[in-house]
């Protein structure tokens, strides 16, 4: 019986559970399971990596050494040291340079797509940017190795082209598409009425964008940048291939560095499960997890902030 019939006969149908009631229930349960499983998974991952790294933190770790010493020598026979400073500096310098590359590119692209491009151009650009985001990171790493490397050696006359500059540029190009997409969403979410109101006041297009649209989209734009930072922080393969992968406190963009992620990827396969070295790598994982968690949480808070009046 359809709902109008049910309404017409009043109390008679009030307690009957018909097909749509059951469908509603089942869908509710499915959606609930989906939501909960995301939470369970994230907690599970957290428990897993802390479980494996915790022994190191409690038994072997010298916190001072971990954060201040650049000496990452886990395989030393008589005196292994676990100073992660160089790795942290490697990740930070590469990510920092990547953002210097990605932010202007992606904000510019987002402004162009959202505010200037029309019709076909706009659609084609959007698809291309999204395609760019789908390029596997190992391909980016390959570009770093085979194109950027000789290019840097030749252009800047340095002995090695696998360094902060190489990895930063590659990572910047990798992060730019996702940042562009999110920033463009943020710009599109600015009500058309704001633009019209500003235009009616005699604002030029740049004034509309700089005085009204960008401030109104500020939270979404910050979120886009933060998600890009998170992307850069967590990227492994491209950085491993393009950064030179040598332990260094970088003093110039032409120094080779090693990233936290690349260290885990490169060394984990060669350690005995449960050994001190193994646990130390998991501690790096906890550090990465913590940092990306905070970055993404901040980004999320900014996105939420956007919805407030």
């Amino acid at each position: 019986m359809d709902s109008s019939g049910a309404q017409a006969s009043g109390t008679f149908d009030a307690d009957r559970r018909n097909a749509s009631w059951w469908v509603d229930r089942v869908v509710q349960a499915l959606v609930f399971t989906g939501g909960v499983s995301a939470i369970v998974l994230i907690i599970g991952i957290f428990v897993f990596i802390t479980g494996h790294g915790f022994g190191f933190i409690t038994d072997h770790m010298d916190v001072g050494e971990f954060f201040t010493s650049p000496k990452w020598r886990p395989t030393s026979d008589n005196n292994p040291t676990y100073g992660a400073l160089a790795l942290i500096a490697g990740t930070a310098s590469v990510t920092g340079l990547a953002m210097l590359v990605a932010v202007p590119f992606s904000l510019g692209a987002a402004i162009f797509i959202a505010e200037f491009a029309k019709g076909k151009t706009r659609e084609v650009l959007k698809v291309l940017v999204e395609l760019l985001a789908a390029i596997p990171s190992v391909v980016w790493g390959f570009i770093g190795l085979s194109i950027m490397n000789p290019l840097i050696i030749e252009t800047f006359d340095v002995p090695v082209g696998l360094n902060v500059l190489n990895a930063g540029v590659i990572l910047g190009l990798m992060a730019a598409p996702i940042m562009t997409t999110i920033a463009e969403d943020a710009l599109k979410a600015v009500p058309e009425g704001f633009r019209e109101a500003a235009e009616a006041l005699g604002a030029t297009r740049w004034q509309v964008i700089f005085k009204v649209v960008l401030p109104a989209a500020r939270n979404g734009l910050v979120a886009a940048v933060l998600l890009g930072v998170g992307r850069g922080f967590g990227e492994t393969m491209a950085v491993l291939m393009a950064s030179g992968h040598s332990i260094n406190l970088p003093t110039s963009p032409f120094d080779s560095v090693r990233a936290l992620t690349a260290t885990i990827a490169a060394e984990l396969g060669e350690t005995a499960a449960g050994s001190e070295h193994y646990q130390a790598l998991f501690t790096l994982g906890i550090l990465l997890f913590g940092v990306t968690f905070v970055i993404n949480l901040t980004a999320d808070l900014f996105i939420r902030g956007r919805r407030k009046p």
């Binding site: 009500p191 009425g193 704001f194 019209e196 109101a197 500003a198 009616a200 009204v212 401030p215 109104a216 009046p309």
Partner: peptide, 8 residues
């Protein structure tokens, strides 16, 4: 305009 637009 028809709908009030308080700019943010």
């Amino acid at each position: 305009f028809p709908l009030p637009v308080g700019l943010p």
